[in-house]
Each structure stands twice: as C-alpha cells, then as structure tokens.
Amino acid sequence: MYSQGLIGADGATEETEEFLAKFQARIDREEKIEPNDAMPNGYRKTLVRQIGQHAHSEIVGMLPEGNWITRAPSLRRKAALLAKVQDEGGHGLYLYSAAETLGVTREQMTEELLSGKAKYSSIFNYPTPTWADIGTIGWLVDGAAIMNQIPLCRCSYGPYARAMIRVCKEESFHQRQGYEILISLCNGTEEQKQMAQDSINRWWWPSLMMFGPHDAESSHSEQSMKWKIKRFSNDELRQKFIDATVPQAEYLGLTVPDPELKWNPEKNGGKGGYDHGEIDWDEFWRVVKGHGKMNRDRIKDRKKAWDDGAWVREAALAHAEKRAARQTQHAAE
C-alpha cells in the first residue's frame, strides 16, 4: 500500500480540463476534500489565504477585549471575559492548524501577519474606549462572526469545516455574554444607557463591513461559491445579520445609527427584511489598507508579544535538546 506523510506532501497538480471537472464533480457531490487529496492550486491558495486571515483575526481580536480584563466591573464579568478571550486564542490555534494541513508553516503565517502582508478582519482596528464596547463586541462582532462561521461548518475543505464546528460550539456564549452586558447597562442609569448607545453608534457600521465588499465588488466570491468554500454571498449574510440584529437593538431600547433603515415587507421573497443605508466603503478600504485608528497598535502589540516570547521558545527548544541528548546517553550506557 502506498503511504504518504500528512504534512508537506507535494500538492502540485496538473490542471487539465479533465482534472478540474473531476474535482468539481467531487465538490458537487458534497464530498469533503482532505489534505492528501489532489486539489487545484487555486483552491489550495484561496483556502490558505482565507484560513490564515481567519486565524489572524482570532488572535488580533484578543487585543481590543484583553484590554478590559483587568477593568471588568465585577468578578462575574471578569471571569466571562477572560474565558472568552481564552476561547479566541484557541480558535486561532484550530485555524492555524487547519491552514498547516495545506502546506503552509506557522512561521510563514506569523511572519506575514507581522510584516503586514497578511490581512485580518478590519473590525479589530477600532478602539475599545468604554466598558460598553465589550458588550457591543460580543453582541455585534461575535454575532457577525457566527453568521459567517455557521455556513463554514459545511465548507468543502474537511479540516476547515471541522475546525469551524468546534469554533461555533464555543462561540455561542460569546454573543450572549455581550448582550447580557448591554441589558445591564440599559437597565442602569441614564448615563450607562447612553454609554451603550454611543458604543452601538461606533460599532454598527464596522460590524456590517465585516461581511466584506458588495457581491459585485468581491473578486474571489464566485469561484469560492462554486468550490463550496463559501455557501452564501457577502450581501446575503449581511442582510441576514441586519434582520436578526435590529429587533435585538429595539429590545434594548437602543437604535442603530442608520436613518435610512426601514422595514420592507417585500424583501427576502415576501418574508420581509430591512432596507438599509449605504455603507461607507471608503472607510472600509482605508482600514483594510492599514489606516484605521488601531492598525499600527495592533501589529506593534503582536510584534512585541512575538519578540518578548522569543527567549521562551528558544529556551524550551534548548531544554528539549538537552533532554533528548541525556536520554540517548542513558540508552548507550
């Protein structure tokens, strides 16, 4: 029987019409593609980029919230926030591991994040000046992430799909703990309610941008849908998110900062949905290109964490080498 290593197998394929058609037929049969399967180079590249970006987002996403752990207003809130941020670190790990099955190394991905070559979600380049932001992030940002991630559980690439199932399971408390924070604030003093409203005013539009550019402007979308890496278009997911979220804002007695928001009974094939105002795509691209409020700080913090951790990684490797040498010596005696 022919055997092959799991990581680092030669993924080069000759992309004949016949090969591509056969691959597409597997996708159309809803078969999962696994690391050792033959796959088009474009499929591999798209996944490496997407899973890498997703992993970076989880890790960078720990920064704006981690910033509040020591200042959480109660032990209950502190335990919840600590647990959430810890989960996000785990999500980063599952995703990096899924990307590694495609032949990219962790070192490569880390380097690309720190050099600015690899992107992460634009949402994490906004600051978190108030405690209400922790509530809003859980509710809106994790809410948008969940909306994105649920269809990814059915992604055609096996390791990514399985990582997403795990992530989604853990993710469900993140949104609830955020919304609970907002309920408390909205039941509090006028000042606390104002703090919640101000926070939604700042996070609403950036959350809608998390779904990416309009379908017409989204360059890789069509091929990704055909390969069943994606199941819904950016605009479809954004619409679902708006329709689910607006009533939740109403329950809080808060408003979303969109004067053009209006219920439209004709939308969604007669089920009804919200029409909304135009997204400021200039802002989106500005932030994506590195000119958001926090881009520089985020990368600076990640770099510092990486550099400060260097001696620990080196020491652990040196220790492991020493132990291995001692064991060989032991065996020889």
Partner: peptide
C-alpha cells in the same frame, strides 16, 4: 465548574429569541 463557559449561564429574555 466553569459554568460561565457555557451559553446557558447568561440570562437572555425569551422575547429576544434565539442567540
């Protein structure tokens, strides 16, 4: 014993619907 790692730990009124 870390109940706060589970979604059911958080009180979300029923009117809000599934979250």
């Amino acid at each position: 014993d870390k109940v706060y790692r589970h979604p059911t730990f958080y009180d979300i009124p029923e009117e809000v619907g599934h979250m």
